[in-house]
Amino acid sequence: MKYFVAVFATLISTAVLADPPEVKIPWKGDYPHNSSKHWSKDNPYDSGFSKNFKNGTPQEFGEVQKDGELNAFIYSPKDAKGPVPFVIVMHGCDGMSTTEKEWTARVADALNKEGFGALALDSYTTRYVDNSCGLSDLHWGRRRADDAFSAFDYLIDKKLAKVNEVYIMGYSNGGTTALVSMTTQESDHPHHFAAAFAVAPGCSPSLQHSALYTGPILIFMGDKDDANNPEWCRELTKKKRSVPVQMIEYQGANHGFVLDVPSHVGDHGWALTYHPVAEKNMMQTIISAIKAKKFAKGVESR
């Protein structure tokens, strides 16, 4: 009987950890850098800078909606008293799938153990978007930057996070979002991210050549990534910047190195292979950077 009670208590504890509090975050997009123009096929990327929660993209079935809210999961460290450093975690182009929920939970667990909080943000469910994979990557990276800043405002309003210690981390399209969120074009927001951790992002030419960044950036990527071109991220990193930008390139890893699923070719034709050693190293690197508040430059192979 004692054994049964102990096991049952463990199961309850595990269930609690698996189901963090879900909250609704009011979306904010009324900033000078944004426009009221709707998406059009003639201007598919700049319309990402939108004052509309839904802006008429094909992924939104052409719907336009001024206001909205986002789903999010809050992972606060155990025994947290008062505001703590927080990381806003952004999913990839497939949305908050089961696999990416599991990834964000692993990220949150690693952060919580160090006394840091995590907010896993769902950009797509309340927009009824299935995925944004492919050519729309930069558009949605721009759209989702305002999602991330809305979550930032929420954390500060609720006194959960330290205002100068909120970071953004994202995978794939979420990584692109992290890069966009650090550009000076987004500096009209009331708060600014302390740094960005971009995992397998799309380092588009506009982000390579013209973007000026407001804070440090760490890019993590596999050299075998066939979804987002590693060379583009190398070029972004090599540009002379006023802030440190570093790329850590994992040898033999592909686009799926943080997704704990059997190795396969995904629906979009990309190789996806879990690389737990690279994932663990990435989290250790991120935690060390948050603790030391020190960031390097250049490309490093691991």
Rank of each mutant, 00 (worst) to 15 (best):
S187H: 09
S206M: 12
A178R: 13
I25D: 04
V261P: 00
S76F: 01
S132I: 15
L121T: 02
K41D: 15
V89Q: 00
N164T: 11
K28M: 04
S35Q: 13
C93I: 09
G117L: 09
E300F: 09
L70T: 03
L135I: 13
T273G: 04
P20D: 10
G141D: 04
R142P: 01
A118C: 11
S172P: 05
G92M: 08
G82Q: 03
Y75C: 06
A271S: 09
M282T: 11
M282E: 05
P190F: 01
C93P: 10
E165W: 00
L121H: 01
A161F: 01
F49S: 04
V265R: 15
S210P: 01
L70G: 06
C233T: 12
Y75T: 07
A289Q: 07
G298Y: 02
P216H: 02
S181D: 08
D153I: 07
Y250G: 00
S76T: 06
E165Q: 13
D46Y: 03
S181I: 04
A278E: 07
H192F: 05
L218D: 14
Y124S: 06
L119D: 04
Q65R: 15
Y75R: 13
N229F: 02
D19R: 14
K66C: 09
L160W: 12
L138P: 00
V87P: 11
H33R: 12
A178F: 08
R241Y: 02
M169V: 06
A198K: 08
T285W: 01
S263G: 04
V163E: 15
P20N: 11
L135V: 13
Y171E: 12
F152R: 03
D267Q: 12
P44D: 02
S136F: 10
T176G: 13
L212E: 15
S40M: 07
V89S: 11
Y3N: 13
M182N: 08
I88F: 09
Y3D: 15
R127N: 06
V107A: 10
N71Y: 11
